[in-house]
């Protein structure tokens, strides 16, 4: 699972979705892998407005990523190639291969195996 995807997901349990505590889900015991991918600056510029920056900072911190800017880059900053390359590495090239995603609201743990997260719920949580 990529860090970008983690910024778009929350707890699959319906009651949790409404609670601000359920987002972002928190990585635990994450094993990371860096996969080199083509740099796509236009994609980053297009997607940045949809990113929840505070949550991204939380996730980056949990994964031990060097600090990212305090506020979301805007305007002229979006032409800063070094900044965009760092974001590219964090959002698209960093993959969580093994570990868990944990909801702060209900404590439910979603397993990640071979890079694929499983959000299916047991029947008592449906």
């Amino acid at each position: 699972m990529k860090v970008l995807t983690a910024n778009f997901i929350t707890c699959a349990i319906k009651d949790c979705k409404a609670s601000p505590k359920s987002f972002p889900l928190h990585f635990q015991n994450a094993e990371l892998e860096l996969q080199e991918l083509e740099f796509q600056p236009d994609f980053l510029r297009h997607i940045l407005p949809r990113i929840d920056w505070d949550s991204l900072r939380v996730t980056a911190n949990e994964l031990g990523f060097p600090s990212i800017p305090e506020t979301k880059p805007e305007g002229e900053e979006l032409n800063n190639e070094e900044l965009l390359r760092n974001l590219h590495q964090l959002l698209l090239e960093t993959q969580v291969m093994e570990g868990k995603l944990v909801c702060d609201n209900c404590g439910h743990e979603y397993m990640i195996k071979e890079g694929i997260a499983n959000f299916l719920l047991p029947s008592h949580l449906v």
């Binding site: 995807t5 929350t10 796509q40 694929i116 499983n118 959000f119």
Partner: peptide, 23 residues
């Protein structure tokens, strides 16, 4: 097309983990 692959995950559309906002 590897650089165009974002992710796949296991989930049910009626209990999707995707956020309830335009993404």
């Amino acid at each position: 097309l590897k650089s165009k692959f974002m992710d796949t995950f296991t989930s049910d559309l009626t209990h999707t983990p995707l956020l309830n906002r335009p993404i």
